[in-house]
Design a protein around this nucleic acid. Structure first.
Lengths: 203, 203
DNA sequence: GTCTATAACTCGATAGAC
DNA sequence: GTCTATCGAGTTATAGAC
C-alpha cells in the first residue's frame, strides 16, 4: 500500500500548476515556479506527475471541461429558446467572473494544437452548437422567430460573453475602468446581451 | 559601407519570424524554427537581429500597429454614427481575414505584460474608445438614439468582429465549417454585425 | 513522501573561417 | 553576408539519501 501523502500535496500542486499554466501557457510555465508556489521542490513534482507534459494535460483537461459542460447542460435544458439564451449568458458570465483567465488559456492551447481537438472532443455526438441549432430551426419552422442562421446567434452570444474577458487589460486601459467597474460592467451584461440577441431574432 | 545583402534576407526573416511568433508566442517560438522558415541559419539571424527579444519587439510593434491605427482612422472619420459602425466592421473584418492570428497574438502579449501597455500606448490623448464615446453621447443628446452606454456598443462591436477569429479552430470543429465556409461566414458578418448594433441603439 | 545533488538536454548566443 | 562548430545558461528529469 502506498504511503499516504502528509498534507494535501497533490491538491496543492494542482492549484499551483493551474495558476502558472493559465497565466504563462505551456511553453512559458516553469516547473520551478510551480514547485515554489506549491511550497515543495521540483523532484517532488516529478514524483507526483512524471513530466511537465503530463501535468499540463491534467490541468488543461480540467480547464477545458470547466469551459464546456456548463454549455451542454444549459443547451439541453427543456425550456424555451429565450430562457436558454438568458440562462446561458447569466451562468456563463458568472463562471468567467470566477475564472477570468480560462478563455485565453483554452483558446490558446487549441490554436497551437488544432489537430488534437475536434474528433476527440465530441466524438460522434452532436456538438453543443449543433443541438442549439436544432432548437433554433424548430422555432423558425414554427414561425416563432425570423429565419436566422443559427451559427450567427450562437457565435454572437459567445463573442459578447467571452471577448471582454480576453481583452480585459486592453479594455481597462482604453476605457479607464478599474477591476470593480469591470465587474459591474459584466454583471449588467448578463441581462443586456440576451436582450440584444433576442431582439435580433424577433419577427 | 556595409555590404548589400545578397537576397532580401532581412525581409525573409521578418516574414518567417512573424509567422512563428504569431502561432507560437514569444515563449514557444524557436530561433531555429524561424531560421529554417527563412531558409538561413541561426547565426545569420543573430547577425541581423542581435537577440530573440529584439526580433520579437519588431514583430510585435508591427502587429500592434496593424491591430490599431485602422481603428483610429475609422473612428475619427467625419461621418454619421451608423456609417462609422458599418465602416468599422467592414474594414476591420477585412483586415482580420488577412491576419487571422493577429488578435490572439496581440491580446496574449498584452495579457502577459499588462504593465507595459496603457500609459505608453495612448499617452495623454483620448483613446479610440473615448473618441467613439464622445460621438455616441452627442447622438444621445440630440435624441437620435436611445440612452445607451457607449462602452456597451463599442465592446459588442469589437467582440462580434474579433472573437470568431480567436475561436476559429474550436468553432470550425464545433460547427463543421471548413476554411471556405468560415470565410463566407465572416463576409456575411460584415453586414450582419452593423445591423444588430444599429438595431440595438434605435429609439 | 520528501529532500539535495546532479545528469541530460534544449536553446539562445558567440567565435571564427570563408 | 553567410556558414559550421561550440559554448554556456537555464530547464526538465533522475539518482539516491533520509
Amino acid at each position: 500500500m502506498v504511503k499516504m501523502e502528509k498534507d494535501g500535496t497533490q491538491e496543492k500542486i494542482l492549484i499551483a500548476a493551474s495558476k502558472v499554466f493559465q497565466s504563462k501557457g505551456m511553453a512559458g510555465a516553469r516547473m520551478q515556479d510551480i514547485a515554489d508556489k506549491a511550497g515543495i521542490n521540483k523532484a517532488l513534482l516529478h514524483y507526483y506527475f512524471s513530466s511537465k507534459e503530463k501535468l499540463f494535460n491534467v490541468i488543461f483537461k480540467e480547464a477545458f471541461s470547466t469551459f464546456f459542460p456548463k454549455i451542454n447542460a444549459l443547451i439541453d435544458a427543456d425550456n424555451s429558446l429565450d430562457e436558454k439564451i438568458q440562462g446561458f449568458c447569466r451562468e456563463y458570465i458568472d463562471m468567467l467572473l470566477k475564472n477570468p483567465y480560462l478563455p485565453l488559456f483554452v483558446l490558446n492551447e487549441i490554436n497551437s494544437h488544432p489537430d488534437r481537438l475536434a474528433k476527440k472532443m465530441w466524438k460522434n455526438q452532436p456538438t453543443p452548437f449543433q443541438r442549439f441549432a436544432t432548437h433554433v430551426k424548430e422555432e423558425i419552422k414554427k414561425k416563432k422567430i425570423r429565419a436566422v442562421t443559427p451559427a450567427e446567434i450562437f457565435i454572437n452570444m459567445l463573442s459578447m460573453c467571452i471577448f471582454p474577458f480576453i481583452a480585459k487589460p486592453l479594455w481597462m486601459a482604453a476605457s479607464g475602468m478599474n477591476e470593480m467597474a469591470f465587474r459591474n460592467f459584466m454583471e449588467e451584461r448578463k441581462l443586456e446581451i440576451p436582450k440584444i440577441i433576442i431582439e435580433s431574432i424577433k419577427k
